[in-house]
């Protein structure tokens, strides 16, 4: 289970990097992130973590409600 959590964390991390790179970085005339890109990456990752947290909470609630409906 611990190993699974590790894997889940790493997947989250890797998805986060991909998403924020994809959404924020589009100028390849330089090899350094611009201030605008840096700010975007920061807000994007903060927002993604809050997003995952909220979706996770709702997911658990729905899952619990569904379990109750099934009468277990």
């Amino acid at each position: 289970v611990e190993q699974k959590q590790m894997k889940d964390f790493m997947r989250l991390y890797s998805n986060l990097v991909e998403r924020c790179f994809s959404d924020c970085v589009n100028d390849f005339t330089s090899s350094k992130l611009s201030n605008k890109e840096l700010s975007c990456v920061q807000k994007c990752s903060e927002k993604f973590l809050k997003h995952s947290e909220r979706v996770g909470q709702r997911f658990q609630e729905q899952n619990a409600a569904m379990a109750q409906n099934l009468g277990r």
Binding site: D23, C24, C40, Q42, K43, C44, E46, K47, K50, H51, R54
Partner: peptide, 11 residues
């Protein structure tokens, strides 16, 4: 659901 402008870090 998520606005991709990322003007702020909160939801």
């Amino acid at each position: 659901c998520i606005n991709k402008q990322y003007n702020e870090g909160g939801l």
